[in-house]
């Protein structure tokens, strides 16, 4: 167990992170901190390094340089499953359900392997826990459905539910609203707002600006692998470089 961090210490600290693929630098010396329970928006044009950053935080990719500090512990050398057990959860830009399973079973995977749960609870308890998460997300009726039968928005919700089932302290939502209708976007946004709170910080990656503005306490904008603006949403949106990056020149 790690020593509890000081009360004002950040939950997540990204330290001078650099990641390149061959000659292409996807992330260039990125440093940022996310507080406990914070709602953090991450924006930037396509190919600006958002998903690479998510991969580096969740452990799917190892950075070339820099460190990821989570809860005061350097998790840079850890594989994704170890990070999951420490409280980092994520959804995927293109949903990646366990296709041979039902919705409930997808959540059971998370509960089966989440930190500490296996010794504390019986299978029946875990099933109950999964059902209560599904109820909270609004998917209880689909618990026994195979994932292949889900609609796009249901898949997005299922991924968020599965991420929640790992018992996260940090939830990263990677474009969970892409390809959804306006009413569905509101639905997922409300969901994300309700999931965050005192205990769970959320990093939301999104292209839909209204959603980011409404959701975030702070916003960070990446362009070509560098941070070009960070701060309160209105301030970042007003930033000339952000507007340039989005509107193009």
């Amino acid at each position: 167990m790690t020593v509890p961090a000081a009360p004002d210490a950040p939950l997540l600290r990204i330290d001078a992170l650099t990641k390149s693929f061959g000659g292409f630098v996807a992330l260039n010396d990125v440093s940022v901190q996310v507080r406990k329970g914070e709602r953090f928006g991450l924006i930037g044009p396509n190919g600006s390094g958002k998903t690479t950053l998510v991969h580096c935080i969740s452990g799917a990719l190892r950075p070339n340089k820099g460190a990821v500090i989570f809860g005061g512990e350097d998790v840079t050398p850890l594989p994704p499953n170890q990070r999951s057990r420490r409280g980092i959860a994520r959804s995927f830009q293109i949903p990646r359900p366990f296709r041979s399973m039902t919705v409930l079973e997808n959540l059971m995977v998370a509960l089966d392997f989440a930190a500490g749960r296996e010794t504390l609870e019986s299978t029946a308890h875990r099933r109950e826990a999964a059902m209560s998460i599904l109820a909270r997300i609004g998917l209880a009726a689909k618990a026994e459905s195979p994932t292949a039968t889900l609609t796009q928005v249901e898949l997005r919700k299922m991924e968020l539910a599965r991420a929640m089932a790992t018992g996260p302290k940090l939830l990263i939502s990677d474009e969970a609203m892409a390809g959804l209708s306006t009413s569905e976007v509101d639905e997922v946004l409300d969901l994300l707002m309700s999931l965050g709170g005192d205990d769970i910080a959320i990093i939301m990656i999104e292209h839909i600006m209204q959603a980011v503005m409404r959701f975030s306490q702070r916003v960070m904008c990446l362009d070509a692998g560098r941070i070009i603006a960070i701060g309160p949403p209105a301030e970042v949106m007003a930033n000339a470089r952000v507007q340039e990056a989005y509107l193009g020149t």
């Binding site: 799917a60 057990r85 994520r90 041979s100 998370a110």
Partner: peptide
């Protein structure tokens, strides 16, 4: 057992399994 569920999960999607806490290796 949960080992079986973990194996099924990694068969379906190895990265998603890892990120859901399954020690795939």
């Amino acid at each position: 057992s949960r080992i079986g569920r973990g194996l099924h999960a990694l068969r379906d999607d190895e990265l998603a399994a890892e990120c859901t806490g399954v020690p795939t290796l």
